[in-house]
Design a protein around this nucleic acid. Structure first.
Length: 487
RNA sequence: GGCUAAGUAGCAUAAUGGCAAUGCAAGAGAUUGCAAAUCUUUUAAAGACAGUUCGAUUCUGUCCUUAGCUUCCA
């Protein structure tokens, strides 16, 4: 089996994955700022790193997956300078900030569960780690890479850049950045425009505030991830993930903070998922062109032609490589829905195949191809293409072209189950628990239809099928009799 | 302006220095009372222009177009 290769944003190439500690993986992923409903964009890292988490465990690594909840909002636009997102939303809604946080955290958890993502091992909150963040600031100050001005603490990027390379992750040059930020935004207390805040003094109307050695205020934008990843994964850990839009400045700042406080980088592999676009443009809260996950699940949005099963969304996202953009459209989602249904149907077909003496299926070959694709930087689109090769062969055998013996059937079933369910995290488009009554009633109805068919009373037979169709119940005739499914 | 990516059939999305794969859609046939599902099969793709090469979609360069970041964002 080939080694697992990951694309490291830092080196801009694929590297063989080697954990720092044998048999163990530490992974930190930037989670959501909980001030609004999760949208399709949030599903991308959720699913991308869920697959990483699942696959690491499949490979036998003891994996600790840390994903934060940002509940101290980042600063909003210049119009609301000094006010953070959570506090703003809270004031507008006349709510306590923590009420907003609790509400949207629950909503986020619910959506992520719908998408069948496993909960992270630890889900720390920024507000729960103010002490750790203050400690980290003190360390950075002590090392001379930060300065205090009037209760605010800033990271001294220029000083830092003398000893380390600032901009190495995003490929930026500090001189260009300084010369390019020529719009003076009246923030004269910073020594350089590229410096960023580690601690901000709270203005009087600022609700979320904590005492600190410098002022009553709140931690800077980038600090929480550095502080919490260090706390739960150590000063060095394997993987740090997040959206591509976080590369600069967020992750660049994290690298700087780690080096400034501990003298070395914390992260071995930086993984970034790309954006989801809508009409070719990034789907984002600030652009106002987002569709929330619950809208996808209910179909209630102008741009949606129908409701989509969460597994359709998951499959749709997995059909693209995580480092590519995916463009949303109803057509694309519909295609994903059909494909997903076909895949799941084939798994059931496989169950029902009668085994024979010999086998025309080369399970080892599939196995090799499946592992090769996932090991190649989590190339799920290729993996899915190979899965469909298996689907085609399964259907062929069911149609009488080819055969499957007992051991091959067992191995193939196990292999497909591992990849579809355990690794890709797909789930049957089940039909929520049908109550026994529905089953019984359907048996009677289909029994009636069977009698009609035997009498060649096609009008009645089709009437039953059509009317059930209106109730979203699909009836399919097969050799073994009619089967039905409800959406 | 700077940085980073990307441009593949009707749509989506991959791999690859030498048949361009997969899903959906479209056409034909098989199966079915008719459907659905399934099988077989057909059509259909590499932004433009140079260069390197026996050979380029792949490597290099220029141009065009698009996106992301450059300020909160997954």
């Amino acid at each position: 089996m080939p080694d697992l290769n990951l694309y490291n944003t830092l080196s801009r190439k694929k590297e063989v994955f080697k954990p720092l500690n044998e048999g163990k993986v530490g992974m930190y992923v930037c989670g959501p700022t909980v001030y609004g409903d999760a949208h399709l964009g949030h599903a991308r890292p959720g699913i991308t790193f869920d697959v990483v988490f699942r696959y690491m465990q499949h490979l036998g690594y003891k994996t600790r997956y840390v994903r934060n909840i940002t509940d101290v909002g980042h600063l909003v636009n210049d119009a609301d300078e000094g006010e953070d997102k959570i506090a703003k939303k809270a004031r507008l809604d006349q709510l306590e900030p923590m009420e907003v946080v609790a509400f949207y955290t629950r909503s986020y958890h619910k959506d992520m569960a719908m998408l069948n993502t496993l909960p992270p091992s630890i889900e720390p909150t920024a507000t729960g780690h103010i002490i750790e963040q203050i400690a980290m600031i003190e360390k950075i100050l002590a090392n001379g890479y930060a300065y205090e001005v009037d209760g605010n603490v800033y990271f001294d990027v220029v000083k830092y850049n003398e000893d380390h390379a600032y901009g190495k992750l995003s490929g930026r040059n500090i001189d260009d950045m300084i010369s390019n930020t020529r719009d003076l935004e009246g923030q004269s207390e910073k020594r350089n425009s590229v410096d960023f805040a580690l601690w901000k003094k709270a203005s009087p109307e600022h609700i979320m505030r904590w005492p600190s050695p410098w002022s009553e205020g709140f931690p800077g934008w980038h600090l929480e991830c550095s502080a919490m990843s260090t706390k739960y994964l150590g000063a060095r850990f394997d993987i740090h993930g997040g959206g591509m839009d976080l590369v600069f400045p967020h992750h660049e700042a994290e690298i700087a903070q780690s080096c400034a406080s501990d003298g070395h980088e914390a992260v071995n592999y930086w993984m970034h998922n790309n954006m989801i676009t809508i009409n070719g443009q990034k789907m984002g809260k600030s652009l106002g062109n987002f569709i929330t996950l619950s809208e996808f699940f209910s179909g209630e949005h102008d741009k949606l032609e129908q409701a989509y099963n969460p597994m359709t969304i998951r499959f749709f996202i997995l059909q693209a490589h995580y480092r590519s953009t995916v463009d949303f459209s109803n057509e694309a989602l519909l295609a994903a829905e059909k494909g997903m249904t076909k895949l799941m149907a084939a798994l059931e077909t496989l169950e029902g195949i009668q085994v024979s003496e010999d086998s025309t299926v080369n399970v080892e070959d599939y196995k090799k191809k499946f592992y090769e694709s996932i090991n190649d930087d989590f190339n799920t689109p290729i993996l899915i293409a190979h899965l469909f090769d298996a689907v085609k062969q399964i259907n062929s055998i069911a149609a009488g072209k080819g055969s499957l013996n007992k051991s091959s059937k067992e191995e193939l079933t196990q292999l497909l189950s591992d990849f579809c369910f355990d690794i890709l995290g797909l789930k049957k488009l089940a039909v929520e628990a049908q109550d026994g009554l529905a089953d019984d009633v359907m048996e009677v109805v289909l029994g009636l239809r069977k009698i009609a068919k035997e009498n060649k009373d096609w009008t009645t037979a089709d009437f039953i099928r059509d009317e059930l169709g209106k109730l979203n119940i699909t009836v399919k005739d097969s050799k073994e009799g009619a089967i039905w499914t409800k959406e």
